[in-house]
Design a protein around this nucleic acid. Sequence first.
DNA 1: GGTTTATGAATGAAAG
DNA 2: CTTTCATTCATAAACC
Lengths: 212, 212
Amino acid sequence: MELQAQQPTEEGGSTQAAGSSANTPIRPTNNRWTPTPDQLRILQELYYDKVLKNPTPEQIQEICLYLQQYGQIEDKNVFFWFQNLKARERQKLREFRNVRVGGSLDLNFGSTSSTDDGRSIDLKFGSTGSTSTDRSIDLNFGSRVGYDVDGSIMEQRGEYHQEIETLPLFPMHGEDIFGNMKTTSEGGSDYGGGSRISLELSLNSYGDADMA
Amino acid sequence: MELQAQQPTEEGGSTQAAGSSANTPIRPTNNRWTPTPDQLRILQELYYDKVLKNPTPEQIQEICLYLQQYGQIEDKNVFFWFQNLKARERQKLREFRNVRVGGSLDLNFGSTSSTDDGRSIDLKFGSTGSTSTDRSIDLNFGSRVGYDVDGSIMEQRGEYHQEIETLPLFPMHGEDIFGNMKTTSEGGSDYGGGSRISLELSLNSYGDADMA
DNA sequence: GGTTTATGAATGAAAG
DNA sequence: CTTTCATTCATAAACC
């Protein structure tokens, strides 16, 4: 079994804690999660094939739940997995753009020395051949993609702060929070437009949507 | 390595002159603010012990000013710190529902109604009456309800929490955020030992918008 | 088995 | 307030 039994480990996180030396009787220092081959495969399918880049908390839960049949996994693992993959692809893309900035010159200096881009970005869409989805996950989240344009949050400022008369140091409401902030809207837009993916998932979708 | 040396990046907008020899930088290569152990401790005390979740701009200023004796820090750092911590705790709570059960679980999130229950969570803590919009907030946390004799208030927080009783489904970082503080630095730093803070952040300084 | 690489985890900052 | 982006830290896994 690839089940790497994990434990509560409220260790506080990470660092080098571990067992200092001759101590820590019961604290195996839970290692970090590592996806099983199946888990990884499914996650990649979701990310690449289904173009799911930003799973909602609900989707994360569902994915996690589904993946648990392949080994221990938690919500945060799924969350971080997507977060990291996306961030790193973006990072590589940025580096790439960086390298070809000149347009003509080949400034291939800063590249990684050894393996280089051995595993470059391979956005393979539609390559369903590799995946035999015996069961599919249904991530129909069309009801959530666009947060309704409610203005409920706007009252936040009006509530706690009605006497703004003494220190206009930093407005901190609206978009001009600190005025002098960086505001580097580089990447900007989110190209992961795939809103309504619908992998069909056949998990037991019981109609019980009520918590406890 | 992944070659994190991005482009030169004109930076600068990030508020600080990159390690302008303040007090205890703690972090060698940092562009972004990193709380010193003391700063972090105090911030956590404010958040958990004092139940200060939504500091007003005035409070932020006061806090910032106070924390500057422990290292470089700006208003926006305090602002973001509180905002992030609160957001992540809340996020964690949101994931809290839909508890994983041994066998059947509902994954019918698609119909979870995106307009009412989703974000209408009304977190109500047993606020001791300090987060309100009072003008004279006194964050005098020198009067803690019994701190350790040595001042190790590291694990004090968490008691106030009543909504979290079991399985932290999304234990990103809550009560033990920096329970380790992985700063690979020396370690000694400015740990002055057990020095209880007696900060008295009275907002009596109206019209004092200096230091900006 | 020491070094390198890949990636999980954390969090400051910012956008929406 | 909620969600996403960017950067960094830590470490299992891969490599030699």
